[in-house]
Structures are given as C-alpha cells and as structure tokens.
Design a protein around this nucleic acid. Structure first.
Lengths: 189, 189
DNA sequence: TTCACTTTTTACCATTTGGTAAATGTTTTG
DNA sequence: CAAAACATTTACCAAATGGTAAAAAGTGAA
C-alpha cells in the first residue's frame, strides 16, 4: 500500500483524507505462482498495482499455442485494459509467474475515487502515458533485432527473472521456439 | 477541423463555446511528402491530429539504419510522446509519407484548454488509452509471426499504402531487409 | 531523349530459426 | 523411493532470412 501511495505522490500531492479514501477503496491480495488475476472470456473489472512479484499477460494463438505478450513487475499497474475499458470479454489472461502481492481496485471504487479527488484524471493520465511509453519502447525495437539480441535485452530488463520462469513463457515472449531459446542460451554462455 | 470535433464529441459533449475555444487554439497545417512534423534532437512541443495523409515515426539504429517504428494515418493524433511528455530532446523523428493535412495544438494552448474545459483530462485519457491499445495490439502480435504474415497484416491495415511508399520504410517496419520483403511480395503474387 | 540517380528485384551463399523427435533433467505425487 | 508428469536440451534437416553484389526497372532533370 505504501508503495502505491508513494508512486501516486510522485504525480500529485494528496491530502490525508484523500490517501485514506484510496486506502478504504482498495484490497490487498496475495496470489500463488500460476494463479490468475484475470481470465480469458471474462470481462475485467479490477485494476491491480503490483507490490511484489511478476505477472504475465498471455493469449492463445490461432494454432493453439500459448503466447506471452509481456511481463508486469513491481510498481506497475496491472489491468486487462482492452476488456476493462470497453467492457468486453477478454481474449487474454493475466497469470502470476511468481508468488505475488498486489493492491486491487474495483471498477466502481475507481469511479468513486475519480469523482471525489480533483485532478485524479490527470494523475491516471500521466500513469497511463508512462506505462504506454514503457511498453511500446520495449516491444517496438525488438522486431528489428535477432533473437539473441532480444534475449540479451530481456536479461537486462529482468535480470532476476530469466532463470526463474519456464523457458516456454520467455520463448513465446521473444517470438521464438523453446528449442531456439535453449540453443541461444547455450551459445551465449 | 470538423473531423477533430467529431472525434472529440464521441467522447464527451462540448458546448459551442468550447468548440470555438478549441478552434481558436489550433492551426491547420499542410505538409508535403518528406516534410518533418518533428525532428530528432529537438524537444517536441506540438500535438497534431491527422486529417489527411500518413506519417511515419522513425529513428536511426546503432548501425545507422533508418527504422520505421510505426505509421500514423487519418483521424489519429500524432505526437512524439516521449519528448513531449518529459520535455527531453527526441531520439526520433516524424515524417510525412504522403502529402498531409493536420490540425496542430501547441503545448501551451493545450494546457489552456485543459484548464478551461472541465472534463478535458477525461477525454484525453480515453483517447490516449485507445491509441495505446491500438498500437500495442498491432505491434505486439507481430513478434510471434513470420515476415510473410506480418506483411499480409500490414496489407490489411493499410491496403492503399503498401504500394505507395518506399519499400525500405515498410521493410524496416516489418523488421526485415528490403530484399526479403521484395522476395515475399514476389512469392505472394 | 538521354543521362544520372534512386529504388526494386534477383542471385548466390552463409546464418538463423523452425519442426519433429528423442534424450536428458527436474519436479511432483503417490 | 519410484513412477509419472513436465521442462529443457540436443540432434537432424528443412525453411526462412540476412549480407553482399549486381542487374533491372523506374524517376526526374537537362
């Protein structure tokens, strides 16, 4: 919770009452490795803020393969944005890759907060923008590089993670097969 | 201008005064193929709304190759978001791929608008979110597919464009060499 | 038109990656 | 512990892509 407040304060000052309001509208949730934060087919109505651990956002491709679109780690917000924003059933799911801890906002409570705290929209605007930039800047250059370089970049971004998650998650994130990733690992070391 | 107002009205009603305010704070600009909307090294302080034509957002890779990150077409906002948001010199540039026409907001005027129109932040929030989703949903699945599939997807998204722009722009967007794209084109037809 | 210039195509071979399958390692469960 | 289930590595060959270079096609200007 503390982590969340600190992050919010970076964007805008908040009064004690406002901080209390936010605290009263949230729930602390703990999940184990493999648990789901949101599932395909359902409509998302929660936003999470990750305080501990790592999630992955995935979907099934046409040929039935599970593909990891990206990873979300500490101090980032977690939401199936497409489903949450347009209130449509999701085509993807969000799963805990490690044991995790997060702060959860329900849709209704977020609306209440937005209607109560003046300037809240401005804060979420900035947070959304930052998340957007992070994600696009991370994914976009990857296309132009070969798999080995992509793997090395991943190691830079998530140094602790690479060896703790199943190879298959990482391979699909990098856009290659498990076998190729295994080969690349071998060649690097 | 009409196009811009119509788009804004999809998100929230606006009074005549508000619409006039927006009109008074904007400039219509026309550029020729090859002209720049923003340049590397400079700090962006304008936001555009494309009413006609197509832009591309590019940068130079370490080995000096020009890489097209993405294309922006009609009815979308155009901004070097990283530079504009954090007021830092840009590492990329935005160039007209066709003759274009756009509505331009200066940073200062956008601030004025945000301070005058109640709910403006909410509108920009929604627009940013949509742009974010469009972009990520477009780029993200590309890694998992081979170059031929990526090219076909591009044809779906920009059917008129593929044959009107230099092969090199498109090849770098798809993450392959010109030669490979030429070969792929040949094999498809 | 012709010439210079740019863009696109083609060709060749080296390298990377994919697909299939099997072998090895690791974890979980009874 | 042993068996089963799952994850990773390895091997083999096919297919896709890159790199270099040259030919062909297209474009614009004198």
């Amino acid at each position: 919770m503390q982590q969340l407040i600190e992050l919010l304060l970076q964007y805008s000052p908040l009064t004690k009452q406002q901080i209390e309001l936010i605290g009263s509208k949230t729930e602390i949730r703990k999940l184990k490795t493999g648990d789901y934060f949101s599932e395909a087919g359902r409509t998302a109505n929660e936003v999470g803020f990750v305080t501990q651990g790592i999630f992955r956002v995935c979907y099934y491709s046409k040929d039935g393969n599970e593909i990891t679109r990206y990873f979300i780690d500490e101090n980032n917000f977690l939401v199936d944005l497409n489903s949450y924003t347009y209130q449509i059933p999701s085509s993807e799911y969000i799963q805990a890759v490690t044991d995790v801890e997060l702060v959860v906002f329900k849709r209704k409570d977020l609306t209440d907060i937005a209607n109560t705290i003046v300037g809240w929209d401005k804060i979420t605007n900035q947070i959304t923008t930052k998340a957007f930039l992070d994600k696009v800047n991370r994914i976009s250059p990857m296309l132009a590089e070969d798999a080995t370089t992509r793997y090395k970049k991943f190691l830079d971004q998530f140094p602790k993670l690479a060896l703790r998650i199943p190879l298959s998650y990482l391979a699909s994130y990098l856009g290659i097969t498990q076998q190729s990733l295994s080969r690349i690992r071998k060649n690097i070391s």
